[in-house]
């Protein structure tokens, strides 16, 4: 079985980003970049399927500028066999990313595509579902457990009320939730080996799809700030404040 894992280069999750002073966008000057945590989980799941003998080849793919090669190398160090950069310098929306990924799916014919459920910058939570729509494949989003059984995938999903298990026909699109697995750290020898693994670059334009943005960001502003609160000394003080000042309990 062949697995395709789309990954995204994002601001490291520890960084607290701020809007630019003129509100024209997000201030990303000199911030640390990393592979999106959910994508790391996707790579790990693919590697486990390969180690378990289910998968034979793992291809990591990203849509982005040439700087994203760094995150593809990370995926290769974690165990992907080869990588594809669909290169573009414009900021591409989920619909366009899904269209480009569909192009890659058509070329590579994977049996399984594993994506992150959301990128922690745009927080859109759209790409996997859109790719499923465009390819006509079934989708199993927010996965916390994945089993391949013959021509089907059995997936447990994290839903609002608890857990839901569905069975989907292969090929299918899976998106990862946080508890699917705990990704490994790349070892130094594997980081070295990753440098030798194949990384192909293809021009986004060569896939012949419309990637014009449909959304225009008019401004990016800071969220409303909360007034600084107070430290109470005792539980009695706390109860008193909640009853008589905030009036949120009786």
């Amino acid at each position: 079985m062949k697995i395709l894992v789309p990954i995204k280069r994002v601001v490291d999750y520890n960084v607290k980003v701020r809007p630019k002073a003129d509100e024209s966008g997000v201030d990303l000057n000199n911030v640390k970049m990393a592979i999106n945590p959910f994508c790391e989980i996707a790579v790990e799941e693919a590697v486990r399927l390969k180690e378990g003998g289910t998968a034979t080849e793992i291809i990591a793919v990203t849509v982005g500028s040439s700087a994203s090669q760094e995150q593809l190398r990370t995926a290769l160090a974690l165990g992907a066999d080869r990588a594809i950069l669909v290169e573009t310098d414009i900021e591409v929306e989920p619909l366009a990313i899904a269209k480009l990924l569909k192009g890659v799916v058509e070329k590579e014919s994977p049996d399984l595509v594993i994506l992150g459920k959301q990128a922690i910058d745009g927080d859109n939570n759209q790409t996997s579902q859109m790719l499923a729509a465009l390819t006509g494949y079934a989708q199993a989003t927010f996965a916390s457990e994945l089993k391949i059984e013959g021509e089907k995938a059995l997936v447990t999903r994290e839903v609002d009320g608890g857990l839901q298990t569905i069975s989907v026909n292969l090929p299918c699109i899976v998106s990862t939730d946080l508890r699917l697995n705990e990704p490994r750290y790349a070892s130094l020898p594997n980081i070295m080996k990753a440098k030798q693994k194949p990384l192909d670059v293809i021009e986004a334009g060569s896939l012949g799809v419309d990637i014009e943005p449909r959304n225009k960001t008019l401004k990016v502003s800071p969220p409303p700030v909360r007034e600084a609160g107070i430290i109470v000394e005792t539980v009695d003080d706390l109860v008193d404040k909640l009853k008589n000042e905030a009036k949120v309990i009786t």
């Binding site: 989920p94 619909l95 939570n125 790409t127 996997s128 579902q129 859109m130 839903v159 609002d160 959304n215």
Partner: peptide, 23 residues
């Protein structure tokens, strides 16, 4: 933007060839 809405709405928008505005 429940787990149900997040699951089917991007599929709807891609089928309609429109962007989705999330959350």
């Amino acid at each position: 933007a429940t787990t149900n809405g997040k699951n089917y709405m991007p599929r709807v928008s891609a089928l309609l060839d429109v962007a989705q505005i999330s959350d």
